[in-house]
Simulated scan of single mutants.
Amino acid sequence: MTNKTNTARSVAEALRVRVLNNEAAAGETLDTIAGLMDEYGVARETIRAAVAMLAAEGLVRSVHRRGVVIQERVARRRIRRGQAVTRNPRYGYVFPATHDPGEKWVAHGQPYRSLEPAPAAVAETFGVVAGTSVLRRRRVMSPESEPPFQLVDTWLSPQAVADAPQVAEPSTGPGGYLDRLEEAGHGPISWQETTRVKMASAEEAKLLGISTALPVFEVTMVGHSARDDQPIEVTIKVIPGDRVELVTDLVRAESAAWPVSPVEVS
């Protein structure tokens, strides 16, 4: 390990103590980069490296023209991700949750829809050329009185919009856009979900109020039409890595039954 790295880690540890001792409140500036350079007598590169270490822990983020801003600390949620899709008579389908189903959630800002160039992965899923304009419905959500918890993008295929034009309207009616798609001949829709860890993009970090140094969970759900088994919707949830812990209850297979069966020796 180089002296430069050692110095950055030492500065990071000093800053961590200041943050955890609540030297500044969440949303306030701990100090400017220039101020920290003077205080610790190190180069800008060293301060930036130290701040990046704390940003990766979800403690701070660097904001242009402000300096090092304290992040609001939120208790991690232990989430058991199941496989069952249920239905609420009032709201429609309910998918394996990232929160307590009885908890009140709110939107940050106004949810909106727009035609956007399809990202490569979405375009490939829909079988269109990357950059093709595709309908996106976007919202930033969280439990009431908490900072943004997840960014949710729902992309709807051109065929889905053609078959069920109401999915492009501000209000999609009872049951939401999924009910409109199924009524248009795509029901019952089936889904496949994939989860991966990645670094937040600049846009995602801005909407979630986090640093680009903080890893995020990306949960992608693809809905397939029952009519032709083609993908008609892709919903992508981006969740800061300091918000959740995914929990799985492991089940013993028959071969792992207890007590262990004696091994036959020939």
Rank of each mutant, 00 (worst) to 15 (best):
Q150P: 03
L115H: 11
N88H: 11
E146C: 09
Q110L: 15
R73W: 00
T98L: 15
V134T: 02
S114L: 13
R87W: 09
H99W: 13
R80E: 15
P117L: 04
T98G: 15
Y91W: 14
A75F: 09
P148M: 05
V134R: 01
A107S: 15
S133T: 11
R137V: 05
L151H: 01
V129H: 07
V74G: 00
D153N: 05
H108A: 06
P96F: 05
R137C: 04
V85P: 06
Q71D: 10
M141G: 08
V63E: 07
H99P: 04
R76F: 03
W105N: 12
W155T: 03
Y91P: 03
R136A: 13
R136T: 06
V74C: 07
P111G: 05
T86K: 04
E103C: 06
V63P: 07
A56P: 01
P143H: 11
Q83W: 13
V94W: 07
R113I: 13
F126M: 04
P147M: 07
S62D: 06
D100A: 09
F126D: 02
Y93L: 15
V140F: 03
L59A: 00
Y91K: 13
V152K: 07
A130V: 02
H108Y: 08
Q71N: 11
P101V: 06
Y112E: 14
R136N: 10
T86W: 00
R66F: 06
V134K: 02
T125I: 08
E72I: 04
S114C: 13
R66K: 13
V68C: 01
E103Y: 03
P101N: 05
A97M: 12
A118W: 03
F149L: 07
E57T: 02
A107K: 13
V68P: 02
R66M: 10
R65Y: 12
R113T: 14
